[in-house]
Amino acid sequence: MTPIPLNHFVIFSLFLFSIGLYGTLTRRNVIGILMGIELMLNAANINLIAFSRYISPNPETGQIFVIFVIVLAACAAAVGLAIVLAMYQNRKTVQAEDIHILKW
């Protein structure tokens, strides 16, 4: 069985990243945006694994990175969701365009 060529992984991750980016930029709902961000992170993870498997002389490096990213993504999601919850409690909305208190 021939292994799946590296190109496929890269193209797949590109699609995944684009979907995530699109979601992040277009979703009105903050939770949707968070989900988009997760997608982009995972696209990056796939790339890391793939390159580590095919190119790197030291395959463990990429895996370690990925594990770090997963952990951080989990943390980021937890913090992000907590923020969303707090925001909802205060402003009764989770729509991104309604939240512009950082504007000057």
């Binding site: 980016l21 930029l25 945006i33 512009h100 950082l102 000057w104």
Partner: peptide
Amino acid sequence: LRKLQTGLIQNYLLILL
């Protein structure tokens, strides 16, 4: 210049992109 500062995070991201 402050007109750029919309406070909408997606605008920022777009500009970043």
